[in-house]
Write a protein that binds this DNA or RNA. Structure first.
Lengths: 360, 360
DNA sequence: TATGTTCGCTAAATCGAATTAGCTCAGATC
DNA sequence: GATCTGAGCTAATTCGATTTAGCGAACATA
């Protein structure tokens, strides 16, 4: 008996306060307490006095609603699923989650996350686990902008593609960086600096078709770049198509470009890692970045501002992408199964010192 | 009527299969179905025939248990809360989550995440939101290894400090990198390369007290470094204490060290960003890394392998840290409120080319 | 024949909120 | 005085699983 009482007391200390406790303390029914807490006082004709009693009981007990219980009844959990392919392994990808997290918190939601490492089976399992937990919606994020064939299980409830486009256009709402406009921005930086000839691409060829398989971004950037150059009455001098975009690849490509006659005057590197390699190749060849050769890059990796001279880069707006995806989901988007929109998020230009100052 | 039927049908298509459906289809009670599914067949003396019927019904209906409902009854959610201060904003931090995610998945758990940006209020709110959802445990992660005063709300249920030590030692289980041993590793790399004199620290002084406030790692690394050097019959030649550890800071510190007589022979940079600055300063001064001056660094940021020569760095084992935290939590750890253990995860040496080859 | 035991299964309670369908009493209406 | 109306509240059901308590038949024991 002694022990039993002890245990009971211990449990009582740990046990959560429930609505029943609050109601009892306020001297009303659970129903009334529930109505007060859900703000339906007027509608349900609860007197202000009773409301006050309930609220005071809530205060006194430190009552917090049990979300699990509420979810069972209502079917909503104030929780969003975030499934990514390889988000964790890349530096700025955390910002994707960060943006999503911030938006979720603003709407009093929490994020449940999972990673698939590109494995379709894991992806299906993650979606199932989230459905089992009745998430209110799912965000399916890809690391690099590409076409995605969303598993049918996704179509059951609100979902948004993040940084990816559905294989069948219009079948799923998606949020992607505005790469075409980013291409225009990059080209404008060079055109405004006075460049017309000797502009080379590092990472892709000169035509949208000469682009790494699946790298949607590259093709779209080329469209924007070509457009602006054409307006300026010129065109790309060439490009080196690369399937991998690591510093080493940028180094090799840049070396090969330096063998050309005439030599490149400006480089458009398709990510900042390529730029790191390009800097090294130019240094080895005795060329000065921002003087002999200008470089515009994409992504705005932290390394961009560590390079000397600091690298001008068109930033991938990861934070905004994540935020946007959650906001669309919570504002009722992500339900359309036809005619779904593509939201394009602007990519801001980070103007630094790798491009020659315009001759004024 | 027509519309109503349509809606009903639609709902029926979307509505989940419940245990009741399964039981009905198998011609048994819910209780029996539940016992079969929870593997308590023998204990509850369910005949193999009935078990088979239930399992077939599960197959046919594609039944999946509703986790929300189960949680309401059992109080467990198969969900772990992961709260970090600023994990998203730093490159390798994603690996912390990644490791946690992998371990969670192996145990059929999901991760609920939140970020506090170092704000105590947000931290408390995040913990509350997770408690409201009955998470089975909470991991409180810090970006840089430091002392943490865990909010009392954490003490309610299993929790683990990740990359942080509790202000009151032994009050909370924690998982941290083994920084002392990492310091030993770094020093051993230099000693084995033949260095005895002219070894300088970039980022801290030569004594554990001359260390940026709160940077537990720096103090511990110094302990390890001094220990090994002492064993080798020598000691640190000096160090530059820095409160910020960005490339710029490493650059300035290295320049100032190059003014000394005799000049530094080897640098121990306390993170890879400092090393980036050190490389640049040495290059400006016409010194060759790995020949004139050797560098050992910490963290193993991606940039370490982009530098030329590639940087030798003692890696922060983020993936393992995250994994370890989840495993401790799920194996019943994180409940002790006194005498809690500190788990130290080894920091592997990434031997590359920034240290002179040993003279053999 | 009466009394247990074991086997194989089920009815009903439970978790904590949301919600539907009333119920009671005071005052208005005829 | 009977009926209606509305204000102000509550009893009871529901969500979908887990779990406790127990039921009926078959068989064994005395």
């Amino acid at each position: 008996m002694h022990t039993r009482a002890g245990i009971t007391k211990l449990k009582a200390m740990v046990a959560r306060v429930t609505l029943a406790h609050v109601a009892r303390l306020a001297g009303v029914s659970q129903t009334t307490a529930s109505f007060v807490l859900s703000g339906r006082r007027v509608e349900m004709r609860i007197s202000p006095e009773v409301e006050a009693r309930v609220l005071r009981a809530v205060q006194e007990t430190g009552y917090r609603p049990n979300v699990v219980s509420r979810s069972l009844r209502t079917g909503t959990t104030n929780t969003i699923g975030f499934i990514s392919d390889t988000v964790a392994t890349t530096p700025f990808a955390g910002h994707l989650i960060w943006g999503a997290l911030d938006a979720a918190r603003e709407h009093d939601h929490l994020l449940v996350i999972a990673e698939t490492e590109g494995d379709k089976q894991l992806e299906r399992e993650a979606i199932s686990m989230m459905h089992d937990r009745s998430v209110d919606g799912i965000i399916l994020a890809s690391m690099s902008t590409r076409r995605v064939s969303p598993p049918t299980a996704l179509l059951d409830r609100p979902s948004v593609l993040l940084n990816g486009l559905p294989m069948r256009p219009g079948s799923l709402t998606s949020v992607v960086p505005d790469e075409v406009e980013a291409g225009r921005s990059a080209a404008r930086v060079l055109v405004q600096a006075g460049y017309r000839d000797g502009i080379f691409i590092v990472g892709a060829g000169t035509k949208p078709s000469e682009t790494p398989r699946g790298a949607l971004a590259a093709a779209e950037r080329l469209v924007g770049i070509r457009e602006v150059l054409e307006e300026a009455g010129t065109h790309l001098a060439g490009g080196v198509m690369l399937t991998a975009w690591q510093p080493r690849d940028g180094y090799d490509a840049t070396r090969s470009l330096l063998d050309r006659t005439p030599e490149p005057e400006a480089l458009v590197c398709f990510n900042d890692r390529l730029s790191v390699g390009a800097y090294q190749a130019l240094e080895d060849a005795g060329r000065k970045v921002g003087e002999d050769v200008s470089i515009v890059s994409f992504d705005d990796d932290p390394v961009a501002s560590w390079l000397r001279p600091q690298l001008t880069s068109i930033a991938l707006p990861h934070y905004e992408l994540g935020k946007c995806a959650v906001e669309i989901l919570l504002s009722g988007g992500g339900r359309e199964r036809s005619g779904a929109r593509v939201h394009r998020v602007p990519m801001p230009v980070r103007l630094r010192d790798s491009v020659r100052k315009p001759i004024t």
